[in-house]
């Protein structure tokens, strides 16, 4: 009996680790480069690894490095970090609807590991998601991020240049790999992704919004717009009947 209980708890966790493998691969080159750049920016080994352990957010960590080199004030860097990572609020809200009901402590724990990548992996799966699964996806990404940060600092980004360049596609390929299966069965998913992609591209290239806000606003407009249009269509059909 005890063994059975243990198994039912362990299986979602192991499935989570498996589902997170592509995240771990994708983080490797990004974290290696971060480690290397942090060294160039003058951070110590401990500071570099600690930042990856405590912050665990790629874009804002890179940004912090360039701001440190520019001599930007600590407060300004922290504020910019907040703006860049505000999009996680939207992701956590969406994930909260999909996560199985559990103790708040456990949710507070795994919420630390919610990133663009882990959110994408978990939220594109059908049905209610188990705590163990969410934890598994988040932990394998976290381990990769921290380990490769340390490696990058110590040995440098010593991968062949060509491979290092081509590995920058990894996370985007993963996003595409997660999106396409859902697109196949649903025109709605195609519209959602296409409208958000279009808006984010416009916001970015016109410089209308900073990256942090751009993703949030593009996502929100697309999600609301598609829902409203679908609701109107459904209303029309009911009126005809």
């Amino acid at each position: 009996m005890a063994e059975l209980l243990l198994q039912t708890r362990e299986v979602p966790f192991r499935k989570g680790l498996q589902a997170g493998v592509s995240i771990a691969i994708g983080y490797a080159p990004v974290a290696l480069t971060f480690g290397l750049l942090a060294k160039t920016a003058g951070l110590s080994f401990i500071e570099t690894v600690l930042m990856s352990m405590v912050v665990f957010a790629g874009a804002s960590q890179y940004m912090a490095l360039s701001l440190i080199s520019l001599g930007t004030s600590t407060f300004e860097i922290i504020f910019t970090t907040f703006i860049v990572n505000i999009r996680h609020f939207l992701m956590s809200t969406a994930l909260n609807e999909k996560a199985e009901d559990d103790k708040l402590m456990k949710k507070a724990l795994y919420s630390f590991g919610i990133t663009d990548e882990s959110f994408s992996v978990i939220a594109t799966k059908d049905g209610v998601q188990k705590t163990g699964f969410i934890l598994g996806v988040n932990i394998i990404g976290y381990m990769s991020w921290v380990t490769f940060t340390a490696l990058g600092y110590v040995v440098g980004a010593n991968l062949p240049q060509v491979l290092q360049e081509s590995m920058t596609v990894a996370l985007y390929a993963m996003f595409i790999g997660l999106l396409v299966p859902s697109m196949k069965g649903s025109a709605k998913v195609v519209y959602l992704a296409a409208i958000a992609a279009g808006l984010n591209t416009i916001f970015t290239f016109t410089g209308a919004l900073s990256t942090g806000w751009s993703i949030v606003i593009a996502t929100l407009i697309s999600s609301v717009l598609v829902e409203v249009i679908e609701g109107m269509k459904r209303g029309d059909r009911q009126n005809e009947q």
Binding site: M91, S120, T124, L179, S182, V189, A218, S223
Partner: peptide
């Protein structure tokens, strides 16, 4: 809808 829009 958010996950699919976010991915885009």
């Amino acid at each position: 809808n958010v996950p699919y829009a976010t991915l885009g």
